[in-house]
Nucleic acid binder design. Structure first.
Lengths: 344, 344
DNA sequence: CTCAGCTATGTTACCGCTAACAGCCATTTG
DNA sequence: CAAATGGCTGTTAGCGGTAACATAGCTGAG
């Protein structure tokens, strides 16, 4: 009634302020605020009331230092602008939600050096775990991660050797499967259209697997076209036009992602081409966007949500059974033939 | 030559380890690692070498606590899955890049309560500043923010009263402008198709401004349709179909965002409707995706990149001139008529 | 009535780092 | 040559919490 509720508006509040306001020790306040240890109902109420009326917000920096526990999980991904990683994040958040752990994201823009510095920054906050996309990292980054002493989960890809655990799909196999489906459907003059980015290892591996499967039946790519930057949908149109002009007899277009594939599909439809009769198309990822297109693009989902979930479960220690880390979880994407590949 | 480089692989390294390895005090190591104060070139080299070979990563938790400085900027946004906020983030990152500040994002899913808890979590890390979307917050959240003692920038919207600073556009005005353009082009039977989400205040304000402008010339909406969840492109198709079936004589469809607008456009084209002759369409946001569509949807860009940049500049203290905070920066979106609105 | 056995609270010693200041040595200056 | 100067390094005292242990009441069994 008589005490001014805010003694000094500029100084930021500490446990001591709450402790003084409620007449108990700082330790007891700390216990109340964390629901740790026995505190009588009466003091609990009093402390909570004091904390609330002061507007006290605990200082996790101090808490983390003292307890040597940080409730953060670093999530390091190449990009936020192509729908695939946000979905991974959704999976991660879902699982972490009720574990007291909180994801913190870092973006590398597909640059290994940037990844290295983002990792350094992350590790300097001593997170409880780290989830990062891909298996390819700078040497320094690998060393840091190995030394960190926390669970590390590399996601998206399992074609390589993980530092600790890994959750993902085999992109090489995904490329192979798609090639096999295309060949089985009778297409023979096949072109690849994809990202130029030298550091998109997963797209590269898909292409490798794809070509390998072609080679196995004596085929090779009829054409290939690369791009970088710009609107994916528009790029897809442009690239498709370029390929069709240069190699008019192609009968299949394999895109490295759904977005450019969708652009290509729109181009083909605009051009009045017979899809999938004369020409077939396929992408990769299984993005939701495709559902609204005039025709459903063939694709392969990358299990993004599931990857996020599994990775988070490993970090949260919710491992299936008695596993200690260092496990590799392979997921298997399913082919969605859509309407752009001839039925066999 | 003789010392084992990694004394105890399980314990995590501290300044003391580096200090012992290089034969100087912890303080000197700290100075070297932060480039602060004078250190002779010789010791600097020695310390850096030791730190590198040990694989030392500084503990920012301890550093932040000791120095009372945290190089983090909280960015709290409603969603990551619709392209608009990632672009804001890009702007923020761009500016923060060379300030030593690092963005940390939190996602609220358009839930005020979730926003409140995300803010609490953020503030408990004592960031140097906070950027958050929207002007509407729970009472508790407002109190926290006002007490926090750090720069707060509310972004996207300026129709309301900010806690501290604000950077954004007037959505009410944006809605009005679009309505005026539509009316000027001669459309009269106008329908609105948009998000149901009760907490998307910006969409709500656009609609309010839109209806206000209609009312001013004696018009009112011929129909309205709301949705929630699901694939935006597909939803756009479905909603458009529903509206056209229910109110066959509409001659304009105003969508609350470009994604559903694009779906609607694809639907109209599929249905062979005369766009923009018999029916016009418009969206909002100016997303890159539209560039690849068969016809360019009329839209209004939301200045997302610029908003992110300006907000970050305020936090980074790069204010134009001698401003102390509490400023409101209004940006003005431009109408992009595209191909889906009759030329006047 | 006494004391083990609780429960509820307080005390002490850090967590790993940095601000502030102190000290040392080699130069420079008058 | 003493004193002032300046460059480099070390010492001390926290930052705001929490772990671990200590202690004060209170209860009920013997």
């Amino acid at each position: 009634m008589s005490k001014p509720p805010v003694p000094d508006p500029r100084r930021t509040l500490t446990l001591r302020d709450v402790s003084e306001a409620s007449g108990v020790s700082e330790m007891t306040v700390s216990r109340v605020l964390r629901n740790r240890g026995d505190v009588s109902e009466a003091t609990r109420e009093r402390v909570l009331e004091a904390a609330r009326s002061l507007g006290y917000v605990p200082n996790k920096i101090a808490g983390a230092l003292a307890s040597q526990r940080v409730n953060l999980v670093g999530v390091v991904i190449p990009s936020l602008s192509n729908m695939v990683f946000p979905e991974v994040l959704t999976g991660v958040s879902e699982v972490l939600e009720d574990t007291g752990l909180q994801p913190v994201v870092g973006v590398t823009n597909y640059s290994p050096d940037r990844e290295e510095s983002v990792l350094y920054e992350m590790l300097s906050w001593r997170p409880s775990g780290l989830i990062l996309a891909g298996l390819e990292h700078t040497e320094a980054a690998q060393a840091m991660l190995a030394q960190a002493g926390i669970p590390i989960v590399e996601i998206m890809d399992i074609d390589g050797s993980p530092i600790d655990s890994a959750v993902g799909i085999s992109h090489r196999r995904a490329g192979r499967k798609m090639a096999e489906a295309i060949i089985a459907a009778g297409y023979r003059r096949i072109a690849f259209l994809g990202t130029q980015m030298p550091n998109d290892h997963r797209a590269r591996k898909r292409l490798e697997g794809f070509e390998e499967a072609l080679a196995r039946v004596g085929l090779s790519l009829a054409d290939r076209e690369f791009y970088s930057g710009g609107s994916a949908l528009l790029k897809g149109r442009e690239m498709t036009e370029a390929v069709l002009k240069r190699t008019p007899d192609v009968d299949f277009l394999y895109y490295s992602n759904d977005m450019i594939g969708a652009g290509g599909l729109l181009y083909c439809l605009d051009a009045g081409l017979d899809v999938p009769g004369k020409i077939g198309l396929a992408g990769f990822n299984g993005v939701e966007l495709l559902d609204g297109l005039p025709r459903r693009l063939a694709t392969m989902d990358a299990c993004r949500l599931e990857i996020g979930r599994r990775a988070a479960e490993i970090i949260a220690g919710k491992r299936p059974e008695g596993l200690v880390g260092g496990e590799v979880i392979e997921l298997f994407p399913t082919l969605q033939p859509g309407d752009t590949i001839r039925p066999t």
